[in-house]
Computed example of a mutant assay.
Amino acid sequence: MLDKEEQLLKKRISELAEHCYQRDIRSYTDFLTLNEQTIFHSMKRTLPPVTWLMNGGYETAERKIVCFLPSYEDETADLPISILKAVPASPRFSQDLTHRDYLGAIMNLGIERNCIGDILMNENGCFIFCMEKMAGFLADELKMVRHTPVVCCPVTQAEEVAPNFETVSGSVASPRLDSVVALVFKTSRSKALPYIEGEKVFIDGRLCISPGQQLKGGEIVSVRGLGKFLYTGALNETKKGRLFVSAEKYR
């Protein structure tokens, strides 16, 4: 992120936190990228003493908002995030639509990218996480993705929403970041290294540039250009002293 953009983001976050603290009312950001979340984590100790939540609408979301809470709300407060389900109107005649197709169609409606969170693909269509203020417009206006008519409507049952995973397992000398990234994405440690040193790897939304970082079970690793996975941990140790580990790679 450019220095000017970073300073503007820090100023915005500081103003939102101060607004919540001084007026005791809720304030929140739009969806933050992984880089932006790292910036928030770097400055949160300098903010006024208010309770905050970071959430993207589901447990393992990548894009998330930061919500500053007034004194009368706690961490169970509902967040201003809506979930929409978009599916082809006639699946039999639908094109093979991708994440990029749905995102492109949304952007063509004039919606800012930071108003849209994750888009989760499934076998029928996708789930779209968005700022609550945009949900009605998006549901009314998203009618076509590429050349395929689609139907877009709110989802009230959050449990419907779940990412698809592919289980990946294998042996590593240790749960080092570079070793596990290489295993999950079927590459070598030397080829995984440029992603880490190039500031393209995030663990639970925080930038990590240390190849030797030891992963812990339950951490979510995002690698720009490759994908994302949930590291589930070591299953056992092989006779040669290597660890047999497992991860759930997002499809």
Rank of each mutant, 00 (worst) to 15 (best):
M1F: 09
L2R: 02
E5N: 13
E6A: 12
L9T: 02
K10D: 06
R12A: 15
R12T: 13
I13A: 09
E15Q: 14
E18A: 14
C20T: 15
C20L: 06
R23Q: 14
I25C: 10
S27F: 03
Y28K: 00
Y28C: 12
F31D: 03
F31C: 07
L32T: 11
L32G: 12
N35Y: 05
Q37A: 13
T38A: 14
I39G: 05
H41F: 13
H41R: 12
H41Q: 11
R45M: 12
T46N: 12
T51A: 15
T51E: 15
M54L: 09
G56F: 03
G56N: 05
E59N: 09
T60Q: 11
T60F: 08
A61I: 11
E62F: 07
R63P: 09
I65S: 06
E73T: 01
D74K: 02
E75V: 09
T76V: 00
I81D: 04
I81F: 10
I83Y: 02
K85P: 03
K85T: 05
A86Y: 02
P88A: 09
Q95S: 15
L97M: 12
T98N: 01
R100M: 11
Y102C: 03
L103W: 03
L103S: 08
G104Q: 06
G104H: 05
A105K: 01
A105Q: 04
E112D: 15
I119A: 06
E123Q: 10
E123R: 10
G125H: 06
G125C: 10
C130N: 02
M131W: 00
E132M: 06
K133G: 00
M134V: 13
G136D: 13
F137I: 07
L138P: 02
D140A: 13
E141C: 12
V145T: 08
R146A: 14
R146N: 12
T148L: 08
P149V: 05
C152H: 00
C153P: 00
V155A: 09
N164K: 07
F165G: 08
E166D: 13
V172R: 01
R176S: 02
L177P: 03
D178A: 07
V180M: 08
V181H: 02
L183W: 09
K186N: 15
S190M: 10
S190T: 14
K191I: 08
I196S: 02
E199K: 13
E199F: 01
K200A: 12
K200C: 14
F202Y: 15
I203Y: 02
G205K: 05
I209L: 05
I209Y: 00
G212W: 00
G212T: 11
Q213N: 09
Q214N: 04
G217K: 05
G218V: 08
V221M: 08
V223G: 03
L226H: 02
Y231I: 03
L235F: 05
L235V: 14
N236E: 10
E237F: 13
T238S: 14
K240G: 11
G241M: 04
R242Q: 10
S246V: 11
S246K: 15
A247T: 03
Y250F: 15
R251D: 10
